[in-house]
Design a protein around this nucleic acid. Structure first.
Lengths: 233, 233
DNA sequence: ATGACTTCAGGTTGACCTGACCACAACTAG
DNA sequence: CTAGTTGTGGTCAGGTCAACCTGAAGTCAT
């Protein structure tokens, strides 16, 4: 018996890991994420987000990185805290109360390819999640997707999915995959170039079946808020 | 001795409580927040954010409401989770590791007036926080202010500071206090009315020393994201 | 080689929004 | 009644956006 007054409390760290992959049916890029099959009760044999108990000697984000890498072998380039889920009834079958601090992560396409899936790990398109997940993880995934879709419109996070050098068409396809809708290539180009989040490498892609596109790289930082109400000097 | 393998872990819930009050010097409205003087080590006698350990029988937001009300007597209308702070070195002097799930809250002006400050609680303008706060609370306050300023530009949260009925000038002064800059009355009016977050009550304010302004109330919901990249049908 | 095809690059146009500014309305104070 | 103050509503010029259009520059089939 521990010294806790009531029910035992567990602090866990989980991560929603996003990656961009072609859909097997359509060939279009979509969001995928890895799920881990639970081997213990509660929710044994159900799919769940990768995660684990907080490592008491590391920061929250470090714990997220560690548990994520241990279970899925991925090392994302972009990691960001999403939300802390801690309702008392979020894991009714569990013997203890679990508070989960959830992160979301973006995996680069080129790193993806060398990933060998670990046991009990499967990647799925976000729109085709298999069955109800363990705990409230369905809710968490839904929330993460919504937030990613919102954030991509005012922040250059889509770059985190791409390799060091990419064409504007690559970037546009990443946006289209996240937002799940087509974007006008011409207008997309104008917008991206005007916001200064990419810089020209001077080189072009070769071996394409069409006019070779210019190669760009992510510009070093440009944190900005999207303000609609402007100042009055 | 408990069963924890390493250092003991404490999960706390804190709240940054914002209120709008005239600055004693200038008379202009600014953001204020309540601070609580610590009566125990670590950081004894330093100012800190209101909060306390997670109540194991309640949700996170309920715990935030409870600790907030117990210490400061306020019952805000708007409560929102800000961030979970859990770096291992954020409270070096403390005997245990503390992970804080921090909320921020907006207090209505009219409720403010009936607040009798409890012992060891003082309200301060956010730009004049007294001395270094306990733990990493200076960082947390800074983060909360930045996020409030960003959010007010794309979400109608400023309404939470106002009573049920208010003039557009009241709302504009709330925005000006949060953003800390003047806004053009005419353009502000056009923008607010066009976004449909307020509705006309049909009545006007009386007893003013000028043309009586119309009274508005907050419109029921209109959650919308500020999208800059539009669809391509 | 030549032409068909594809995709990138870049410009134009009209609708809409923003910030700056102006004029009037409608009350109180003296 | 007059001055002063602030809300209300409108105009105007400049910028931004989505939609559309044209040319550039490769590959591929014949």
């Amino acid at each position: 018996m521990s010294a806790e007054p009531e029910q035992h409390l567990v602090l866990a760290v989980s991560t929603v890991i996003f990656s961009l992959r072609p859909h097997p049916d359509t060939g279009e890029f979509t969001l995928w994420l890895p799920l881990v099959r639970r081997i213990r009760e509660p929710f044994k044999n159900r799919w769940a987000l990768p995660g684990g108990p907080l490592d008491n000697t590391h920061d929250l984000s470090e714990s997220a990185k560690r548990t994520m890498h241990e279970t899925t072998r991925v090392q994302p380039r972009h990691l960001e805290q999403l939300y802390a889920f801690g309702d008392v009834d979020r894991s009714p079958q569990a013997p203890e109360r679990v508070v989960s601090i959830v992160y979301w992560a973006l995996v680069r396409q080129d790193e993806d390819l060398q990933v060998v899936d670990a046991d009990n790990v499967e990647w799925h398109p976000v729109e085709e999640i298999p069955g109800p997940l363990a705990f409230d993880h369905d809710l968490i995934v839904r929330y993460a997707v919504d937030r990613l879709r919102a954030k991509v419109t005012y922040s250059p996070i889509a770059h985190a999915f791409l390799p060091d050098e990419f064409s504007l068409a690559d970037l546009r396809r990443a946006y289209e995959a996240i937002l799940n809708r087509a974007l006008d290539p011409s207008n997309f180009r104008r917008q991206i170039l005007s916001q200064g989040t990419v810089e020209d490498t001077g080189r072009r892609m070769t071996g394409t079946a069409h006019r070779p596109p210019k190669l760009y790289r992510s510009a070093p930082q440009s944190s900005r808020y999207a303000l609609t109400i402007k100042e009055n000097p």
